[in-house]
Design a protein around this nucleic acid. Structure first.
Lengths: 143, 143
DNA sequence: TTAAAACCTTGGAGCAACTACAGGGTCAAG
DNA sequence: CTTGACCCTGTAGTTGCTCCAAGGTTTTAA
């Protein structure tokens, strides 16, 4: 099959397929005489694997690790389990962060219940005058 | 004050300050004879405003809008309130998404309770064989 | 048969919000 | 007079794509 068909089979764009090839996630396929990429069922399976991982918000580095485990026939899958557990932990951390953020925003919003003049708006005042808290470094690849 | 002092006052790096200037968030200051940037208290306030917004995960575009409202003395602040409300809604959406994701990941993880061979690992099987769900487009700038 | 439509190719730029250099200039202390 | 701590500009890298441009090929329909 050609690249368009492969892309449709995995619900993504041809640009994305070519990008994965450049990134080394998807192996480069053989070419036709006219230099078109030619894919088989194994490529569909691999691409679906990648897209399923992405749907779970895994980073390319995590996917690369999973693919490596999966390519090492015979070894045990404890690494896979550990990786998924860590990824769940990332998601948990991000949920906590966003819940904290939500609380901060609600509190900020409450500083200006009525539509007043910008000069006396409690929101703008707080944003201008509050001490900056040093931003914590990211713990996860989730934004 | 020089750029390093300003950066310390707002808990960020000098690179970030220069970046905000390039982006038009922070006005370009005057320069000394030796071409050093020279800042005053108004710059500290503005930079703190920006950093406080960033601490609340607002995008530069949102911050730019807030700064514009705030620079229009005399107008009412309903735009500010609306923007904050929308931002809270973005955060809510992202929390829901991550909670859904968390559920999916827990379910996936349950497919391989025991450390087995990679060939029979339920996680890898599911990732390979599940139909790909078309990824929904992003609703927010929050990752 | 031929012309248009629908594919495919490579290469490069753009997004967001920085971060991290390289390769220089300036300034205060010892 | 030299060392170290600053400052300057400009450029490239990060992540996971997306969107061109400028061409070549294949399929379809008139």
């Amino acid at each position: 099959m050609k690249i368009g068909e492969l892309a449709r089979a995995a619900q993504c764009t041809v640009d994305t397929v070519r990008y994965y090839e450049r990134e080394g996630l998807l192996p480069a396929p053989s070419r036709t005489d006219s230099n078109y990429r030619q894919y088989g069922p194994a490529h569909v399976e691999r691409l679906r694997f990648i897209r399923n991982c992405r749907a779970l918000d895994m980073a390319h580095e995590e996917i690369r690790a999973l693919l490596q485990y999966s390519d090492q026939a015979g070894s045990d899958c404890s690494g896979v389990n550990a990786l998924v557990d860590e990824h769940i932990a990332h998601v948990d951390v991000r949920i906590r962060e966003l819940e904290q953020l939500r609380g901060d925003l609600i509190a900020l919003r409450a500083r200006c219940a009525h539509d007043s003049d910008v000069g006396s708006c409690g929101i703008l005042q707080e944003l201008s005058h509050r001490e900056t808290d040093g931003r914590p470094p990211k713990h996860t690849h989730l934004g």
